[in-house]
Structure formats: C-alpha cells, structure tokens
Simulated assay, not measured.
Amino acid sequence: MDFYLKEGGIRTSFEYGELEISGDETYGFRPFQLMVASVAGCSLGVYRKILDKQRINYEDIKVSADIERNPEEANRITRINLHFVVKGYRLNQDKLLKNLEISKKNCSMVQSVLYSIKVEETLESIELSK
C-alpha cells in the first residue's frame, strides 16, 4: 500500500477506488472512523458468513458502533461496542449469540486490537411476521 500527501490529508488507492484520510472531516475520513469501520465491517462480514453457512434465515443485519476515546492518551479508542440487530423469521436467540461469539474469535480486525481496545458485542433480534 502506498500513501501520498495531499492538501489537508493523505490519499491512497485500492482496486475499489481512492481513499482520502484526514484529521479534518472536510478533507477525508478520520483515522478513528476507519479503525471503527474496519472492526465493525470485519465483525459483521464474518458473522454473516457464519449465519449463511448455517442457513439461518435472516432478512437484514445492522450494526451500530458506540465508541469511547481517552483524551488524556492521544484520544485513543479505548472501547468499541458493536450492537447487532438481526431481523428475520423464527430466529433462535441462543444460536445467534453463540455465532456472534464465534465471529468475534474469527474476525481478524477484532483480534488485531484485542489487547488495546475493549470490543463488546450485544445482540438484539427482531422477529418478522409473514
């Protein structure tokens, strides 16, 4: 990966497209946003793969991220709470929770920050009627 200085930030390119990074949101994504997006995106992606592999019938999954930062330590991220909302038919809450634990153990981004950021996951299931 190569990163280049630009006015107000940094630019990099990937196969999918360009990414603009900056501490100022008017010039690009802030680094902490990218960190949280990486953890949440990886966690949701692994969770979806597990549910699909087990043929669990869901209509939608949303993850909301709530973060805490410590301004006394370079404003570092100290905690990320990922709240999963699974919508579907005939959902088994215990199975959904067990699979969430499995996804946490298999998400490379969660495992990468394991000893520096507390990652908590909560789950809510919404039963849809036909």
Rank of each mutant, 00 (worst) to 15 (best):
S43M: 13
A74C: 12
N75I: 00
A74F: 14
L100F: 00
Y47T: 04
I102A: 05
N99A: 11
S108W: 11
K104H: 15
K87V: 13
R79K: 08
V86Q: 10
K105L: 08
I56E: 01
E68Q: 12
V110E: 06
K62H: 07
I102M: 07
H83S: 13
K95G: 07
N57L: 14
D66F: 12
H83N: 11
S108I: 14
K104G: 10
D66N: 14
V86E: 10
Y47K: 09
L96A: 11
I56P: 01
L100G: 01
N99K: 03
A74V: 02
L91R: 08
L44C: 08
K98R: 15
Q93V: 11
L44I: 12
S108V: 12
D66K: 13
E101C: 13
I67D: 00
K87G: 09
C107R: 10
K53N: 06
V63M: 00
N99G: 08
R69T: 11
K87H: 10
M109L: 06
D52T: 09
D94A: 12
E73C: 11
E73G: 14
S43G: 09
R76N: 12
V85P: 14
A65R: 04
Q54T: 05
S43R: 03
G45I: 03
D60G: 11
K87E: 11
L82V: 01
R69Q: 05
R76D: 03
Q111C: 14
V63T: 05
T78M: 11
V113Q: 06
K105V: 00
R90A: 12
N92I: 07
F84H: 15
T78S: 09
N70V: 05
R69D: 11
S103K: 05
T78R: 02
D94H: 08
